[in-house]
């Protein structure tokens, strides 16, 4: 089947097998290997991306279901060399160790903050329940998400949490 998908600001048109998962399409066809696969039962959340602005586990979406949609991955978050505030907060709060869960965790955290810009600690913990991390014990992840919420308050640039619109996102900067 032919699909047309915009991923991190670039539009692609491809023939895909009906059974191909969105995450396989991202990794194997587009080389978007920043999004990873951690399980085969949609429990770990490592593959979380945004589909039309909302977080989805890309192992639970068929590529064909993304036809006509806009996808944002971890690789499309930083803009013009500037990290997204959630990325920056993960770095500043030492919210990652091996980093394998980090892309999914960051994408889920952004979605959580879009729904609830000032989450309590408990709300963050509940909101990240579908994303597993084996390294950090979550404490610094929770801290990072709340820190990011502070940074994204009005005046700190609220538009940064809306990645679905006009997210050209061509620059994947490092930059500390």
């Amino acid at each position: 089947m032919r699909i047309t998908v915009t991923v991190d600001g670039v539009t692609y048109s491809d023939e895909v097998e009906p059974r191909m998962l969105l995450v396989q399409y991202l990794r194997e066809r587009l080389g978007k290997v920043g999004t990873v696969v951690g399980c085969d039962t949609s429990n770990c959340g490592a593959c979380t991306v945004h589909l039309d602005g909302h977080s989805v586990k890309s192992c639970s979406v068929l590529a064909v279901q993304a036809d006509g949609c806009e996808v944002t991955t971890i690789e499309g978050l930083a803009r013009d060399g500037q990290l997204h505030p959630v990325q920056q907060a993960f770095h500043d709060n030492h919210a990652l160790q091996c980093g394998f869960c980090t892309p999914g965790m960051i994408m889920q955290a952004i979605d959580l903050l879009a729904d609830n810009p000032e989450p309590t600690e408990d709300a963050v913990r509940q909101g990240l329940e579908g994303n597993l991390c084996r390294c950090t014990g979550y404490q610094n992840i929770v801290r990072a998400v709340r820190d990011a919420a502070e940074r994204m308050r009005p005046g700190a640039g609220p538009e940064v949490e809306r990645v679905s619109e006009g997210a050209t996102a061509h620059a994947v900067g490092g930059g500390e």
Binding site: V33, G34, I74, Q87, G99, G173, G174, E176
Partner: peptide, 21 residues
């Protein structure tokens, strides 16, 4: 010190073995 490793891990510029083509 904030970690040097983070820059690539938070942006998806990673080299997991499964990424190798």
């Amino acid at each position: 010190r904030r970690r040097k490793e983070d820059a690539r891990l938070i942006t998806g510029r990673t080299r997991w073995t499964d990424n190798i083509a």
